[in-house]
Simulated assay, not measured.
Amino acid sequence: MNLKSISRVALLATIPLFAISCGESKDTEEEVEVSEAPKFLSKPLVSHIYTADPSVHVFDGTIYIYPSHDVESVVEEDDSGAHFNMRDYHVFSMTDINAEPVDHGRALDVDDVKWAKRQMWAPDAAKKGDKYYLYFPAKDFDDIFRLGVAVSDSPTGPFTAQPEPMKGSYSIDPAVFQDGEEYYIYWGGIWGGQLQKWRTGEYLSTGKSPYADEPEDDEPAISPMVAKLSDDMLEFGEEPKKIAILDQDGTPIKAGDHERRFFEAAWVHKHNDKYYFSYSTGDTHNIAYAIGDSPYGPFTYQGVVLKPVQGWTNHHSIVKIDGKWYIFYHDTELSGETHLRNIKMAELEHLADGTIKTIEPILK
């Protein structure tokens, strides 16, 4: 596939124009748009297919990237994200942080998942013993997002999906965090991710716009979810719990605080015995983070890891490789289209006080 490179930003420039009026010429000034390519912090890691939402892990010394696979879509764009109509997953590997990623081909297709109808969105993976587990969201035949699990003897697949989704699962963006011998799964995404429709514990089919079931602006924001995984890694090993993201004064971040509230793309990493919960703020396009003393939280808001990228979505993972921390993310440099993204990476720095230095993906 030849991927197009059409991304541009519009800058206003004032230039002289010559106009002829009533037989006379005169100098006038008029504002016109001039296109100029943005300067990006990082280069795309993969260019032969469109990739997004990269979840990255190091297994046995090799770096593995588990992204979603963006494709051209004839589905009309709407607030539910229907035009993000991905149907399969590819796995990539890197022998070191400077290596070119190797595409190991299709690891799982929606046609191989009995319960899934469409929209294989952002996945994640885990290793336990000699087995590898791919966690993914997809819409079932009632168009409700569920979480699925697929298993393989290889980190690159192919993966065999379980015949049913995880019991009691819903919404999107599964992320698995290993802490010692325990594995925790985090998930959730509002609007098109449907998390707001589960506020009562049952799916609310209101028939309204995707954001109609959100709380009022002065109420606590919708919480992402967490559960310890079962020993066999195939189900929740406990009743899922809501994650509290708090302001510095200990009060919950409010639903109307779009600069800081959770939207989607949960990820957890551990640094100096602290747990870092990072996530996308959605319509304000930041990757924000909060810190806590437990994988269950509560987590106290600290700031922004990654400023907005080119494109509507912002989704990431954070991983330590050979003693250094990196953030993997995506933007739309190769296509300029919201639903056709490409993955990137940048080095990430924890400061002496435990906070994270904010990264600007587009250079000024």
Rank of each mutant, 00 (worst) to 15 (best):
D70E: 10
K274M: 13
D79W: 09
D130T: 14
P165W: 08
T28L: 15
H350M: 10
D96F: 01
L17Q: 14
G256P: 11
Y326G: 11
K131C: 07
T284W: 05
T200P: 11
I327G: 09
A221K: 02
H104Y: 06
D53T: 11
A10N: 07
G354R: 03
F141C: 04
D273F: 06
K357S: 13
S73Q: 08
T332F: 01
G61D: 05
L229G: 14
I245N: 01
P210K: 05
P308I: 05
N85R: 06
L134M: 07
D322H: 07
S93V: 09
E202S: 14
W115D: 04
I190W: 01
T313P: 04
S5L: 04
V309N: 13
I321R: 01
D173W: 04
K254G: 09
R341Y: 02
F59M: 06
E259A: 14
K4I: 14
S80E: 11
G256V: 10
S230G: 10
P308Q: 05
E181T: 14
E72K: 13
Y275E: 09
E36P: 00
T281Q: 02
A221W: 02
P165Y: 09
S55P: 00
T95P: 01
Y135S: 04
T14D: 04
Q162C: 08
S47W: 07
I245Q: 02
R260P: 00
H69Y: 04
E216K: 15
G192K: 06
T251N: 15
A13W: 03
I63T: 12
N286A: 07
E259G: 11
D109C: 08
Y89E: 09
D173F: 03
Y132C: 10
K43L: 13
T251R: 12
E164G: 00
V34D: 00
V304N: 06
V9Q: 06
L363K: 13
S205E: 15
R87H: 08
K131R: 15
I144M: 07
L229V: 11
D231G: 14
Y279V: 03
S230C: 12
M1H: 12
K139W: 00
S42H: 01
P215F: 09
S47A: 12
A107D: 09
I362M: 13
R199H: 02
I49A: 06
T156F: 04
A126T: 05
G189H: 07
L334G: 08
D153K: 09
L12C: 03
G336V: 03
M120H: 03
V309K: 05
R87F: 05
K254W: 04
G237H: 07
L340G: 10
E337G: 00
D331M: 09
M345R: 14
E164I: 07
H104N: 07
A266P: 15
S317C: 13
V56F: 13
S21F: 12
E24D: 10
K167H: 11
L348D: 08
S294T: 10
K39G: 02
A125Y: 00
S335T: 14
N98Y: 10
A37P: 04
P101C: 03
S278Y: 13
A19K: 14
P308N: 06
